[in-house]
């Protein structure tokens, strides 16, 4: 009788433990839209990269340098991305951000892009190879590259303020566009993002 009472007393505990263990061991994976923000932390994420790129390029193209260039040269301006340095406290995939920038500019149709140094060298190697191996009709000439009119560069900075489980992270992206003939800065853009992360000290 005593044993039965003890077992009865233990049953809810055993059930609770079993449920807890079952709950802990489950893994769930689901497909989500690439444009949907899934923020698991205050780190810089894909959505930040996309939003900042779009906002900055819209701002850049709203400045007078585009029309000035069209009126003067009669062609769309060609831009080269020099470098965007990560000076923040997070490891940011700068290449992904640069690709977002390029896509935004190309989508606008108001400017062209010139490949960067590494890609240009690869293409030149390919043209050299064509000179040896491709037919005359399909060969591409050397010395016909389009030079860039403007150079885009900038930095990603961040500041962090932390107290207990709360952390405020402030990201600031600064980009500038330089006229490669005159060294004139024709555009300077800035975009800021602030994130608040709250963590509790105790959990179940």
């Amino acid at each position: 009788m005593n044993c039965k009472t003890t077992l009865l007393k233990l049953t809810p505990l055993v059930v609770a433990c079993s449920l807890a263990i079952t709950g802990c061991s489950s893994t769930k994976v689901q497909r989500v839209d690439a444009n949907q923000e899934v923020a698991l932390s205050d780190k810089w994420n894909g959505k930040d990269s996309q939003l900042v790129a779009e906002a900055m390029i819209n701002d850049m193209l709203s400045f007078p340098w585009v029309n000035d260039h069209l009126q003067k040269e009669g062609t769309r301006p060609a831009i080269i991305i020099q470098s965007v340095r990560n000076k923040s406290h997070q490891h940011i995939a700068v290449d992904t951000f640069l690709n977002d920038l390029k896509r935004s500019i190309l989508r606008s149709g108001q400017a062209d892009f010139v490949a960067n140094k590494d890609v240009r060298q690869e293409i030149r190697d390919e043209r050299k190879d064509q000179e040896l191996n491709a037919s005359l009709e399909t060969q591409n000439e050397m010395g016909q590259e389009q030079g860039a009119d403007y150079a885009l560069s900038g930095t990603i900075n961040s500041f962090v303020d932390e107290q207990g489980g709360d952390r405020v992270t402030f990201y600031q992206v600064d980009l500038r566009l330089i006229d490669m003939t005159t060294n004139r800065e024709v555009w300077n853009g800035q975009k800021k993002i602030q994130k608040l992360q709250e963590r509790s000290r105790f959990g179940f």
Partner: peptide, 21 residues
């Protein structure tokens, strides 16, 4: 070189935040 040095400095900024706290 610059890319990797920048990455090293990211670590140092995180360190600074941690040590400040």
């Amino acid at each position: 070189r610059q890319y990797y040095l920048d990455a090293a400095l990211v670590e140092m900024r995180q360190l600074d935040t941690y040590l400040s706290t």
